[in-house]
């Protein structure tokens, strides 16, 4: 094995360890936050007329009688085994009907997994549209900077970044669903539907996310390329008589790749947050919708699990950005 490769692997392992550590810290924050809830879960969900037995049954079931530390570790070890517990709505139901009714118990994982798949599909579709679009537009605006085209793009991307997601969503609904019925305004997704049908129903939320994310990516791509244009080797390429397009595509772009990759990964991480509002607008059955619903009814196990998953995806994408930029930049690969 060559030495640089070994060094690279060491750096990547370091980053991965750091990411794991961060995730651990995040789990502590989430646990502390949830345990800051006033009073008792059991009492608060049963209301004022709760009998002592019912309260006790729920406490027993949720393990509330143990100390916070042991609760944390049992939660954490459950999470590591892929067991996020059962939603509170289920626990409540069981405590009223007796220990077991013989029916299937829906765990948090059962609730989350299909929705997470839907969300990843949505994020994937919007990434597939927005990344090529943003990079192309970024290159074009850098190439024709300070022209009317560049200025128009600047104003429109700035407006797209500044608008709340639901504004973009309703504008798209107005024009693409109500006035010209091209796509459905409600994303009625269910398992076993055909891919083309599914794509059609995912299109409006995906386009909304695309609008929000493309603008940011495009501006950063443009900035990354323009930053490089002052370098001596670009000057040299220009003096050689290369066309502006070639200067940018073969000389500037490879060197701008590291910042562009970082930007793409960071914006995909941003998709994770943006997805919440967009899913609610389009009633898209994803994890964001589930999260908001659980927040409203204060279903703590689900909120905890969603939060942890969002954080994990976020950390993972940031980590990817970090590692990819190290790989694509020789100067970072050999730290002095």
């Amino acid at each position: 094995m060559h030495k640089p490769v070994a060094g690279l692997i060491r750096i990547i392992l370091q980053r991965l360890l750091l990411g794991l550590l961060t995730l651990f810290a995040v789990s502590i924050i989430i646990f502390i936050a949830v345990n800051a809830l006033p009073g008792d879960f059991a009492e608060s969900i049963l209301g004022q007329g709760a009998t002592a037995e019912a309260v006790n049954a729920i406490r027993e079931q949720l393990g509330l009688n143990e100390s916070p530390l042991s609760r944390y570790f049992s939660w954490l070890s459950g999470v590591l085994r892929g067991d996020f517990g059962i939603p509170m709505s289920q626990a409540l139901f069981q405590s009223f009907t007796g220990a077991s009714t013989g029916g299937e118990v829906v765990t948090v994982v059962d609730q989350i997994v299909p929705r997470l798949k839907n969300t990843l599909f949505l994020a994937g579709v919007s990434a597939a549209i927005s990344v090529p679009l943003a990079v192309t537009l970024g290159i074009l605006t850098a190439l024709y900077r300070n022209t009317a085209f560049d200025k128009a793009m600047n104003v429109s991307t700035l407006s797209a970044i500044s608008s709340p997601e639901f504004f973009l969503a309703y504008i798209l609904i107005l024009f693409l669903a109500v006035l010209n019925p091209v796509f459905p305004s409600l994303s009625n997704i269910f398992p076993g539907m055909e891919f083309s049908d599914r794509l059609n129903k995912t299109m409006l939320p995906a386009l909304t996310l695309t609008l929000a994310v493309t603008a940011q990516m495009m501006r950063m791509t443009r900035a990354a390329i323009i930053n490089l244009l002052a370098s001596p080797y670009i000057e040299m390429a220009r003096l050689k008589g290369l066309s502006p397009m070639r200067v940018i595509v073969t000389h500037a772009l490879p060197n701008a790749l590291a910042p562009i990759i970082t930007v793409v990964a960071l914006n995909l991480a941003y998709l994770v947050t943006g997805v919440v509002v967009v899913e609610v607008v389009f009633v898209y059955p994803g994890i964001g919708q589930l999260f908001v619903d659980s927040v409203k009814i204060r279903d703590i196990p689900v909120v905890q699990a969603c939060c942890l998953i969002f954080a994990a995806v976020y950390i993972l994408l940031n980590l990817t950005a970090d590692i990819l930029s190290i790989i694509s930049n020789p100067r970072l690969r050999h730290p002095k």
Binding site: T22, L23, A25, V26, I28, I29, I30, A269, V272, T273, V276, V277, F291, C306, C307, F310, A311, Y314, I315, N318
Partner: peptide
Amino acid sequence: AMMAIPALI
């Protein structure tokens, strides 16, 4: 650690 959780979430 706090910034590792997306703000809106």
